[in-house]
Design a protein around this nucleic acid. Sequence first.
RNA 1: GGGCGAAUAGCUCAGCGGUAGAGCGCCUCCCUUACAAGGAGGAUGUCGGGGGUUCGAUUCCCUCUUCGCCCACCA
Length: 874
Amino acid sequence: MNEPTLSTRYDPTEVEERWYQKWQSAGLFQPEHRPSERRYCITIPPPNVTGSLHMGHALCYTIQDILGRWKRMQGFETLVLPGTDHAGIATQKVVESQLREEGLTRHDLGREKFVERVWQWKEESGGMILKQFKRLGFAFDWSRERFTMDPHYHDAVLRVFIDWYERGLIYRGKRVINWDPGLRTSVSDIEVSDEVRTGKLYHIRYPFVDGEGYIVVATTRPETMLADVAVAVHPSDKRYRGMAGRRVHLPLTGRTIPVIEDEYPDPEFGSGAVKITPAHDANDFEVGVRMGLDFNDPEQVPVCIDEEARVVAPGTPYHGLDRFEARKHIVTDLEAKGLLERIEEHEIAFKIADRSGEVVEPLLSEQWFCSMSSLAAPAIQAVKDGRIRFTPSRYADVYLEWMENIRDWCLSRQLWWGHRIPIYYTEDGTAFAAMSEKEARENAGGAAVTQDPDVLDTWFSSALWPFATLGWPHYTEDLQRFYPTDVLVTARDIIYLWVARMIMGGLDQMKEIPFRDVYVYATVLTEDGKRMSKSLGTGVDPLEYINRFGADAMRFSLLVQTGMNQEIRFGERPIQEARNFCNKIWNAARFALMHIGHRQVEAPPRSALAIEDCWILDRLNETIEMVSSALERYHMMDATKRLYDFFWSEFCDWYIEASKRRLDGAMADVPRWVLATCLDRFCRLMHPFMPHITEEVWHRLPGVGSDQFLDYSDWPSPVEDWVDAEARKTFATLQEVVRAARNLRQEFGINPKEMLPTLFTQGLVAGSEDLVASLARFERIAAGVPSTPHISAVALGVDLHLPVEGLIDVQAEAKRLSAQLEKRRRELHQLSERLANPMFLERAKPEVVAADRAAAEQLRSEVRRLEERLEQLQ
RNA sequence: GGGCGAAUAGCUCAGCGGUAGAGCGCCUCCCUUACAAGGAGGAUGUCGGGGGUUCGAUUCCCUCUUCGCCCACCA
């Protein structure tokens, strides 16, 4: 019938691209755009240069974009500095797998060529994620983009290393570390995860040398027995009293080893006797230290597993076998010799390397370590005394707990991609720390030097991010202006890995905290609560959603789920909802703009405002307050929900509908001004969250120049004049009255579009008749009770009577009224009971009692009217 | 073994001392010239179980159950 209308749907793609280009070419993202003494800075967590956008990123960086835009609107000179992390292991893996396809390994290329190749990869394909960031609309200062291996950044890393080395914090030592046999590198304690799987616990007999019998030890890794040096028992364990000092045969080898006493074994567990393998277990290492072993002597501390996780046992059939393969043979052989007492099922916490998924092999290895306790002390203090605040605050405890029990950090990685450790050795092994080989040679008196082959843990350079990105070690203008930064927004899984280390690094080198706030946001899970992961096939691509629904919708849907909760379950529904919201904004704006036209309207005097004008301004004012305060507290959910409710429920459903009756009349300028004002303030408040659509709408308002931008418009402040508790109360009643009227119509099966002649009311506030008539679709409101047949309702003290033609179905009407009556009687009963309780009257707050009394009074009156009405029906 | 978090409408989640809220879904009506990705009206909950504190508990305390996460050297 009707002509198909032109699309009333909002098309985000075109709008979003257009505005992003404009913002960039106008230089809005650079702090220089508007200098100020008040400054705000975020150095964003650098994503891995190999990374591509996932939901966690989308959320994390959207939050930062919001904070940056919000602060800009508040007049701060704002820098949000982007960059990427060289991500040692991840990046090396990418290039190695490329080489593998060419049938090469990195060793075929050699170190120098390989590193060159990685750089080449980085220049060509790295940092894709930053391009994806632009699609989300992030207002980051791309002119200051940093990379953790930029030349000056590299200098910063070396400076810190050398400083700590010279202060004796960094040392080289032989320890049992976590070895990742897949990547063939060490990894730190916090880069491995426990995974409990059912495994086997093998009980093995170690026969005594000097007589009958044997001692039983239990192990989950029988292959390590080849490097056992002792069997330990607890001194208090009566079963083994007097056995210390005796020797046992180490099965499958020709060696004998002593039984020793040590505090380490738990008498409750297994047999109470533990085999000690100092080279392949961190605990056993400690026992070995207590035994006074020389870890450089392979006779004293044998090694039986190499860096590729193969067994090293020359002269045995196990030599060269993979660790798991060797295990099978060893078990078989033990069994054949009658030395295997039993095997039992056992829950074992396997240590899995996060990066490769391989089972970590504890290995005795010489590595660089950083002693942490002296670095940790000031970092603990900074959180304890509140100079750094965590949000949610409970994460401060998580941080402190870890920091107070911090262990030394294994810094070295056996990789080629990364910051190579700036230690050089002369032929005799003397070590020199130096910024370059040249400097090292000079320090060594001209002797030839070779550099340590290892690189630093990637997190070492990440720890310097907040100041190294700003120019340190040079005291640049940026560094002076923007350090300390304001907030770190991060996921909780890198509190130890990164947050703690930045705090330590910043306090140590800058003598100042790196940021004031740490905001920890929720983990984004799949709809059914699973971890989002590419390898599990549960990951979803935010870009796909952005293309379908728009960046603004993508952003909003994440934020509206971001409270102080720990996790977000992300499905398609919320983003559809956000897309619908964009559409609603678009259409409401179209309506408003159609009526506002191109003319700017002066603010009308307060006396010219109608009840709905006062009401919506009051709501707007509250929205300004709530959104501002939610942002202060990082409560994204509160802010976005309030904006959603204000716009959709209050502005569209009520104000726009209420405004319609006046928009054609003589007083049209009043609602025009209110519409424009609401739209303007809404665009500003919503802009940080949905930057594109708000900019698009705002620019259509009269008086907004094409060279103006929301980012540099003012963040709205509450307007005292708009606060109107009276209007709030009155309008709430009117809303109830309108609902009751609409309900009456619907109950009686009247078409919603049909205009009815008269609605009779009693107790309606004077002056609101036109409003109620218009919203409930009546031509007029009359006071009193109609003499003709009618149906009735009560709403907050207002009686409504709807005349109906023909006979009333008395029974149906009585039933309807009775239901209303019943509901109110029930409520009244509860209230009366409470008000009859002297303890309540005595102890409850007076305003609560007063409110209850008023409510009871109203209910009593409504009950009376409904009873009367029912009687009349009979 | 310690610690933290969660349990509220069919689903996803807010609220957190004064008689339960939203969105989606559901039922009824409506293409009323901003919007059907929409409008109007409606139904829906022993707020995980059990104790306690309180005039009053979904909200505070204790305890139990079930999930999730983190930390820890139990072979």
